[in-house]
């Protein structure tokens, strides 16, 4: 009976743990060992590949495409995260304050881009911005004010100097609803009586915002920032469909660069080393998250 009680949890856990080990941890370990080899796609098929130590890692620092991808990731993540969290906060505060009617309807509308899967979202934007058949360029032909705003350009996705910004805006479009939900939860956690008390004490709206709203929301904002940063940093399927990283690497973010290096260029060993860098960034962020921000820490012990 005692033995049974001791092994029961392990029996219950084993299917999940076996699958997680086999399909997540083992591949990660494989990536690490492969990153120490010089291996092409051909070597992969032949199960060969020469051990080269850390030279793949040394190459990374000489690789201008890597630095370019890192720069693109910083721009993409920076604009997306700031935009999503700021707009999410703004929308949540307007909907919460009941200044506008039909807030439930608006909330549901705002969630639509977020629940749309990436590939469908990607196509809707490709067609929206397309040079010849796009809706926005066509619309700009008919409305002068759009032209005045510069909306009539036809190179949204083909101009290397703006493409990463366009993709960031698309990502803000897609992801802001998540921030809106997080911040709404924050607003709901503020008891109304706190505001009443502050009003009675003579605090004005701006004081109330900075002295009450922001401090109570700050843990929600912080968690929101970390989660959004990691999601944006790791996910690249929408960029893969819209531009594939082009034109000429102009929209290649780091996670997409790992993918392209492995599957397009066939440099398996080097891609594995790059993927370890990507993983390291995530590991640091996770440790930070667990140590300082874990919202679930309270209720599991």
């Amino acid at each position: 009976m005692i033995i049974r009680k001791k092994i029961t949890p392990f029996i219950l856990l084993s299917p999940a743990v076996i699958m997680l080990l086999g399909l997540m941890l083992f591949p990660l370990a494989w990536s690490f060992f492969t990153s120490l080899k010089s291996m092409s796609l051909f070597d992969l098929m032949m199960h060969s590949g020469e051990f080269v130590g850390f030279s793949n890692y040394a190459d990374i620092f000489q690789d201008s495409n890597f630095w370019n991808a890192l720069k693109n990731s910083l721009i993409y993540v920076g604009i997306s995260v700031i935009g999503q969290v700021a707009f999410g906060l703004l929308i949540a505060s307007i909907l919460h304050s009941k200044i506008v009617k039909f807030s439930g309807l608006f909330r549901a509308l705002f969630l639509i881009p977020w629940i749309t899967c990436s590939v469908v979202a990607a196509y809707s934007w490709i067609y929206f911005l397309d040079a010849n058949i796009g809706f926005l360029p066509t619309l700009s032909l008919n409305f002068a004010f759009l032209k005045a705003l510069g909306m009539d350009r036809r190179d949204w996705l083909t101009n290397p100097s703006i493409v990463i910004f366009v993709l960031s805006v698309i990502n803000i479009w897609k992801g802001t609803a998540f921030s809106m939900l997080m911040q709404s939860a924050g607003f709901q956690s503020i008891p109304g009586s706190v505001f009443e008390a502050a009003k009675v004490d003579g605090a004005n709206a701006i004081q109330r915002f900075f002295r009450i709203t922001i401090p109570i929301l700050s843990p929600f904002i912080l968690i929101n920032l970390v989660m959004t940063t990691m999601i944006t940093f790791n996910i690249y399927d929408m960029i893969l469909v819209i531009t594939g990283g082009g034109p000429a690497h102009a929209s290649e973010v780091l996670s997409l660069y790992v993918y392209n290096t492995g599957f397009v260029n066939g440099e398996i060993g080097y891609a594995a080393a790059l993927s370890m860098i990507l993983f390291a960034v995530n590991l640091i962020a996770t440790v930070f998250y667990l140590k300082y921000l874990n919202p679930r820490r309270g209720n599991n012990d």
Partner: peptide, 23 residues
């Protein structure tokens, strides 16, 4: 084990898609 499972979730797809292909 619990923390390890949470950490596993943070493994980016880009880091494991090549080994999964190989496996």
């Amino acid at each position: 084990i619990m923390v390890a499972i949470l950490a596993l979730q943070m493994i980016p797809v880009a880091s494991i898609v090549i080994p999964l292909y190989n496996m």
